[in-house]
Design a protein around this nucleic acid. Structure first.
Length: 581
RNA sequence: GCGCCUGUAGCUCAGCUGGAUAGAGUGCGCGGCUACGAACCGUGAGACCGGGGGUUCGAGUCCCUUCAGGCGUACCA
């Protein structure tokens, strides 16, 4: 149950009833249904909820907002509602103040819903896929993958809680050009290993990382006859397979260490071998969206995009001004491009597997592909622009001693995901990577992240949880256990820090809903920090031990409700809620 | 050129579909444990919300324009 919504709805109803009375006796003109919004003012001196209905109606009623507000409040009947008083202030805001029943209801709601507190049916059971990380299996994962992993996983948690039917997927790019590059790189390192560094030139565009040398050495142990007995191509094929068989399980286990597990690892190679890519390209051709030039098969991307933009509200003139280009689907050498495979993959997601929404977490450096992919899937007649949603994640700037550290598989200077966990806890990593909206670049300061103190917000939140657990067990050992809400007089919670804390508890379901709507799980971090701060404030202001018995019971109950929601929200982040630290 | 993202306190960032006096952390200045965990709390100073127009009762938020930074514009993935 969402008590914020309940309160807002009640205000809407109350105002409408008051308006009916005013219209009936002529105090206000009839036929002007109330508009405006109900909001939570920043400053509590204005009350707990504020309606702007009077201001919104001023023009239509041709009356001063304050007069409308006065007329409405004069006819309000608060008996039996959540509210104990109402007032008019400012330009014509109608301010409502909550009564004790509402605060008690929040705590009763937290108690009765427990783990499912915060859940809603906002998603209506819609089948959604979240595809994330999908790192190239040609090398170790880096910090950007770590952010994407945490973002995607947490986003999936948020969506599940908001009532979506969520599927997690990792797209394994085990085909195409970079696999060829992968193979030639291992081959070159193997040759160098065997005959000396200077005897065999390493390909300029190869993968320079140390991990390639390790794979080459590992491969040589399994192939003592190398390079005899097979052609170069055959050896490279074996090497690619060998490398993937090593790297993919490692990616799985690295991600698992971060608490990230998938419903499916989807292999790009399967799309090629089954002919699905070719079939998909044929459909595009049949729909008239392709042409041949210089031996390659091209997609009419520019035209598809123009159609897309115009249908989204751009004028034909605006669309014409854009610098749009066509794309190759099948190269002159007969191989399909990554783009062609990606179109096929999304056809598989939408048409074959029936996901009504497909969310992809991509690095911001891929943003140029968003509209193009959507347009191409539009060209298949599968509503790509509507069903494919891309969460663009700005890249991670890794800092050490204040200096930026470049991350690149090619140069081999990557900080591997697995190594990071030698430095910091999973909890700290997950919280840190989710601490910014995906649209903001994230500075990951290694020196800061290793610190296990209050500089790191995750400890602030976890400390609040541990503090409550300790409090509860300490009081229980003295014979004062947490009582069921029904046995506690919650109307005794009237201190400013208590009501502020309860309001924060009430905001949780809304916060989950907004995080799901905006595809922004970092909201949950902010919520947790805010909840913790309000708890610490309450803890310092309101003693439990030594307070009058009924007051102590009520405060202990409140603390326990906070503990429950902290555990709940930390769970959404995949961060532990320790009982002691 | 075209496109995406970002400009809010010294620093790092919040600010929900436009709402009342723009918030927090950190840093700096004070202060709080013979009291449930001081990994905490209170308090002070610190911002013409990059600039300029516009929309309206009302703009950090919406529109236009301009400046600055990041990224992208492959028969790479």
């Amino acid at each position: 149950m969402n008590l914020i919504d309940a309160a807002k709805e009640q205000i809407g109803t109350l105002l409408n009833e008051a308006y009916e009375r005013c219209a009936a006796d002529g105090t206000l003109p009839g036929g002007c249904p109330l508009g405006g919004t109900v909001e939570i003012p920043k400053d509590v001196v204005f009350g707990d909820y504020a309606s702007s209905a009077a201001m919104a109606a001023a023009r239509r009623m041709r009356m001063a907002p304050r007069k409308i507000a006065d007329a409405l409040t004069a006819r309000l009947d608060l008996a039996g509602t959540y509210f104990e008083s109402v007032s008019v202030a400012g330009a014509g805001f109608i301010n409502f103040r909550l009564g004790a029943k509402w605060y008690g209801d929040v705590i009763r709601c937290v108690e009765s819903e427990g783990e499912s507190y915060g859940c809603s049916d906002a998603g209506g059971g819609e089948r959604v896929m979240v595809e994330f990380v999908s790192a190239n299996p040609t090398g170790p994962m880096h910090m950007g993958n770590a952010r994407g992993g945490v973002l995607g996983d947490t986003l999936a948690n948020v969506l599940a809680k908001a009532g979506y039917d969520v599927w997690r997927e990792f797209y394994v790019n085990d085909a195409g050009n970079q696999i060829h590059k992968f193979a030639t790189s291992i081959y070159a390192r193997a040759m160098q290993e065997k005959f000396g560094e200077e005897k065999y030139a390493f390909p300029e565009d190869g993968y320079h990382g140390e991990d390639i040398r390790e794979l080459a050495r590992g491969f040589l142990e399994t192939a003592p006859t190398f390079p005899e007995g097979k052609s170069e191509e055959e050896w490279q094929e074996d090497m690619a397979r060998f490398g993937l068989e090593r790297n993919i399980p490692r990616m799985k286990s690295d991600l698992k260490k971060y608490g990230i597990e998938y419903d499916q690892w989807f292999y790009e190679s399967g799309l090629h071998s089954s002919g699905y890519v070719a079939e998909t390209v044929e459909i595009l051709a049949k729909n008239g969206w392709t042409y041949e030039r210089e031996g390659a098969l091209w997609l009419k991307t520019a035209e598809l995009l123009r159609r897309k933009y115009i249908s989204e509200g751009k004028t034909p003139e605006e669309a014409e001004k854009l610098d749009l280009k066509d794309d190759v689907l099948r190269r002159a050498n007969g191989f399909y491009t990554y783009f062609a495979a990606d179109i096929a993959y999304h056809r598989d997601k939408i048409e074959k597997r029936g996901f009504s929404k497909v969310i992809n977490v991509w690095g911001a450096d891929h943003h140029g592909h968003v509209a193009r992919l959507q347009a191409a899937v539009d060209g298949l007649g599968l509503e790509g622009s509507k069903r494919i949603v891309i969460v663009l994640m700005q890249l991670v700037n890794l800092l050490q001693n204040g200096e930026p550290v470049r991350m690149s598989k090619r140069t081999g200077k990557a900080i591997a995901l697995a190594d990071l966990l030698d430095e910091i806890s999973v909890d700290a990593a997950r919280f840190y990577f989710n601490n910014r909206a995906s649209t903001s670049p994230l500075d990951f300061d290694l020196d800061l992240a290793v610190r296990q103190d209050s500089e790191n917000p995750v400890y602030y939140v976890q400390y609040a949880h541990a503090r409550i657990c300790n409090l509860i067990s300490m009081l229980a050992s003295e014979g004062q256990a947490v009582k069921p809400a029904g046995e506690v007089d919650l109307t005794l919670l009237t201190d400013d820090t208590e009501t502020a804390l309860i309001k924060q508890l009430s905001a949780y379901p809304e916060e989950i809903k907004l995080a799901a709507r905006d595809l922004d799980p970092s909201r949950v971090n902010k919520y947790l920090v805010e909840l913790s701060a309000k708890f610490h404030r309450f803890y310092n202001a309101c003693r439990i031990k030594g307070a009058r018995a009924d007051i102590a019971d009520a405060r202990l109950k409140l603390a326990d409700a906070v503990r429950s929601v902290l555990e709940n929200a930390l769970g959404v982040l995949g961060v532990s809620a320790p009982e002691r630290m």
